[in-house]
Design a protein around this nucleic acid. Sequence first.
DNA 1: AATTTATGTCAGCCATATTGACTTATTTCG
DNA 2: CGAAATAAGTCAATATGGCTGACATAAATT
Lengths: 197, 197
Amino acid sequence: MADINFKTDTSKPPRGGREPQGDNRAAPNDTVPFDLIELLFFAYRDFTADPDDVLSEFGFGRAHHRVLHFVNRNPDLVVTDLLGILKITKQSLGRVLKQLVDEGYIRQIPGASDRRQRHLRATDKGQELAMRLARLQAERLDRAIMALPDDGAEIVRQFLFQMINPDGRGDVAALIDAGRDTQAPPDGGTKPKDSRP
Amino acid sequence: MADINFKTDTSKPPRGGREPQGDNRAAPNDTVPFDLIELLFFAYRDFTADPDDVLSEFGFGRAHHRVLHFVNRNPDLVVTDLLGILKITKQSLGRVLKQLVDEGYIRQIPGASDRRQRHLRATDKGQELAMRLARLQAERLDRAIMALPDDGAEIVRQFLFQMINPDGRGDVAALIDAGRDTQAPPDGGTKPKDSRP
DNA sequence: AATTTATGTCAGCCATATTGACTTATTTCG
DNA sequence: CGAAATAAGTCAATATGGCTGACATAAATT
């Protein structure tokens, strides 16, 4: 017995005919979209599982992934900003970041304009790992998107964006936008740009 | 300073024009949908934050939420099945389940046909908490879905389903399907019985 | 009767997060 | 200028939620 099967095993995708939706005066039990709640749980669980496997080979965990990902996508990110993105404490970040720096995945570059700051940048080695993990997740996402109608990707994007707390959306949009034109320069000679207002 | 803003703060939603997609021979960097990866991270982070707040009032954590949720949705769920759903170990489940039972949120009912089994069922109190948490998540989901085109909900459902590991989809579909006709009976008939071996 | 299964428990370990207190530079501001 | 605020880092203690391994018990299966 290798595969666990909970309940019966009729292999059919979840049907999606019903959706009363229009009565919302107290969110009565009937209107709670349990299927979406559960699908999101399972989807995210599998989405993070692939990278986790790879990371464990390196002695890293999911926390390292998050740090490396955002640093790779946003070179010269400053520690305070990273804390804001991840919404964790300085102490939590410290441990993970120190490992990534010590093992040569991330460099810390003193700020030029504000010398208190440390600009974070993925090394070549860091970029490689970050991209390897990103490609794993991309494969899954691409396959899922491929199965949708033409406008599927855009609808999914909108959905996910709307799931974010309203007051956080601006920051997320800006972050994604900033990462967009990050072509991951070959870790060459760039000096830390000042991130001061 | 209460709000942390990473990078700039131009409050516009992520644009979604680009999508080369057609060149996949090695998933070159350009084709990695970083925006989706990040949106999924932020969406899930906020999705779980609301329940977490409520749970902490009860001295519970996210693990308790998951257990309570699936037990509530699938009355008489058996321990082995729950382990399969959550993909955690017996020992990990044991801790949280014991707390939920001790504090009267879940009942364990010896199996009728197979008396080794313990059927798990949410008590009235458990159902209340489960529904309170589910409604919180439902609000967020409903608001997000509302902002989409008519077929948005269905596309999102398909997307999330396709994000699940192929070999797990059957089980998930069956589980969701089973939960569908769970009308959360008023905890009437079965008596607690002795949970002794 | 022997084996397997379902459940549970003890003991210890690891990863990730938290709070609180405090230090060191450095910048900003009155 | 000098005080206050900020960026980063550190030490220590604690909580949560995973994990492995070893075992125990009752009940079902073979």
